[in-house]
Design a protein around this nucleic acid. Structure first.
Length: 587
DNA sequence: TTAGGGTTAG
């Protein structure tokens, strides 16, 4: 090779460069090119290696990317950055952080391009100490005013639930560009702070930065979470005026708003008139019918999709199985599930979520033993979601024995999840075994397991109101409780008796009733009765599953107030009208 | 020799 003329060498390198750019769709092709490159013995130009490394990280072959990286002699900072970015983008935050640590140990000086992905990886790790340590490094290197780095730090602190830090970083950002606004709006929308997302969208408009389609999609997604139909429609109207509609992402996001606000007919109209529909549009619509209890329509739409729509994916099947689950269609559920098992399409192979759906379907229909055997026969390790579905069924069917067995398994693999402790505790409470309830409560206290705070939201006059259980902070608090008192008195006269089975503590009857009567959905319904125009339904969105008592309560309220009440809980929609619920008490 | 933001279910 030494005798090889310079010009020929350059041609060879160019040839490899074009080989790389043409054959970069599969890791094996890249490996072959790499091997070929090594046999020529030409000194591998950095740009070729970078191209190879980047292609490997894009294709997600991180082990090979790592191997290639390890063969390099003293890689420069930008190559470290490429590797970190690869791990971060391939959902391997632990590895990304490890590479950064190694870089630090070897005294490779990080540059402004290093931190966006290191910080992103830290945000994914549940250990906030690592994130804070990296923030300190950023400060030491004087890179905290680089807007991309600062944006990622802001998002990281939102994920850690550290509002003071994220507020400070964002507010003190000198030039907030479009991506910075979008990143924070997205972070709020995805981390249970959807109200903040909507508010920030307002601030953004005031600041003069013009939103784009990404902004609109994020805000619409926040509206979906909150169930804010009016705000969602206003945001879309704004997008239309600004010419940032005509985009399938925006169309799907608005479809999701209709679906998640329980406006299934509007969703269908919108879906039918969309100029383009992809697998997400179809899956959203199918899932929407399922969530609204319209299982036949969900399944009919799925057959239509098989005939004329795009190829279904794993998410489509979650909607299909959930439709079966909500309607108790055990036979149909099995047949869809078996179809998935036999499918040669890797995208449709059942994942743990599908197993959880099947357990839910079998469990809800009372086939507890079958559900248990199904879990035991699983080819993959059952995750907490799978066991949790069975525990829920045990609680619903008062099978304390199996429930205890399931809970033992569950608390082994997910000892810190409050909802499982609470399910177990409710199961004992329903059977009056207060001694066990107290034991669980002590265990939770000892281990510091925190409950997810229950809240409900309701929108009227363009304002979003969020109410927590026992809320006393709402400006109309006094009238809300007065209204509730009136309602309960009236309802008791016609046969309502509070179902105290699901109250956590072993306290006396009066206290139990008081705890029940301040559940967030009851407060939201009362607030709705006071404020929502009579011709409109009262739409309440709850972040957790609604309890038996609130369900009965809502039926009674729909009857005595002659109002339509729509509650979306974590599981599905409930339409209460004239004393009945669309779920037929099966949820 | 390179950078940050988005939709679907549970």
């Amino acid at each position: 090779m030494k005798s090889c003329p310079k010009q020929a060498l350059s041609i060879t390198k160019q040839a490899f460069a074009s080989l790389l750019s043409i054959h970069s769709s599969h890791p094996n092709q890249l490996k072959q090119i790499h091997a070929l490159l090594l046999t020529t013995g030409i000194s591998i130009k950095n740009s070729l290696i970078t191209q190879l490394l980047t292609s490997l990280t894009v294709l997600g072959d991180m082990p090979y990317a790592r191997q290639l990286f390890d063969e390099m002699h003293k890689p420069r900072a930008y190559l470290w950055n490429t590797l970190i970015k690869g791990y971060a983008k391939n959902e391997m935050p632990t590895e990304a952080a490890a590479v950064y640590r190694q870089m630090h140990t070897l005294n490779v000086r990080p540059d402004p391009f290093t931190y966006p992905f290191v910080v992103k990886a830290c945000a994914e790790l549940s250990d906030s100490r690592v994130g804070v340590a990296v923030h300190v490094h950023v400060l030491k290197h004087g890179l905290d005013f680089v807007s991309v780095v600062r944006t990622e730090l802001t998002v990281m602190y939102v994920k850690f639930g550290d509002a003071d830090s994220s507020d400070y970083l964002f507010d003190s950002m000198v030039e907030k560009d479009l991506v910075a606004w979008n990143a924070l709006i997205a972070a709020y929308a995805q981390n249970g702070l959807a109200v903040n997302a909507v508010r920030l969208f307002g601030d953004m408009s005031d600041s003069g930065v013009r939103p784009d389609a990404v902004t609109v999609v994020c805000v619409l997604s926040a509206c979906s979470h909150l169930g804010c139909l009016e705000t969602g429609e206003n945001v879309y109207e704004f997008a239309r005026r600004e010419g940032i509609d005509c985009n399938i992402f925006v169309d799907n996001a608005l479809l999701d708003v209709f679906v998640k606000c329980g406006n299934i007919d509007m969703a269908w109209d919108w879906f039918e008139n969309m100029p383009h529909r992809n697998v997400i549009s179809w899956s959203t619509m199918i899932g929407g019918y399922a969530m609204n209890g319209e299982s036949e329509k969900a399944l009919a739409l799925f057959s239509k999709m098989q005939n004329e729509g795009p190829w279904p994916n794993d998410v489509t099947f979650l909607g299909v199985l959930s439709a079966c689950s909500h309607a108790g269609l055990v036979r149909e559920g099995w047949s869809y599930f078996n179809y998935m098992v036999q499918s040669h399409d890797e995208n449709v192979k059942p994942r743990k979520e599908h197993y959880a759906c099947m357990v839910d379907l079998l469990g809800r229909s009372g086939h507890l033993e079958e559900a248990y055997n199904f879990i035991k026969s699983m080819p993959i390790d059952p995750d907490p979601g799978v066991w949790g579905a069975l525990l829920g069924a045990c609680a619903a069917y008062h099978d304390t024995e199996l429930g205890q067995h399931v809970a033992d398994r569950l608390l082994e693999i997910a000892p810190d999840v409050a909802s499982y402790h609470i399910l177990l505790s409710n199961m004992y409470a329903a059977g009056g075994r207060w001694h066990y309830v107290e034991k669980i409560r002590q265990k939770m206290r000892r281990k510091g397991v925190k409950k997810v705070t229950a809240y409900s939201s309701i929108e009227f006059d363009g304002q979003i109101h969020v109410l927590y259980g026992g809320d006393k902070l709402h400006p109309q608090s006094l009238i809300i409780y007065k209204k509730l008192e009136e309602l309960i008195k009236h309802m008791k006269g016609i046969g309502y008796s509070p179902n105290t089975g699901s109250v956590f503590h072993d306290v006396d009857m009066e206290e139990k009733e008081a705890a029940l009567s301040s559940h967030s959905e009851k407060l939201a319904i009362a607030l709705g009765l006071i404020n929502v125009r009579h011709e409109l339904p009262i739409r309440v969105m709850k972040n957790l599953r609604t309890c038996d008592d609130c369900h009965t309560f809502s039926k009674f309220v729909s009857k005595i107030s002659m109002r339509e009440i729509i509650i979306r809980d974590k599981s599905r929609f409930h339409y209460f009208k004239n004393g009945f619920c669309s779920c037929k008490d099966f949820w």
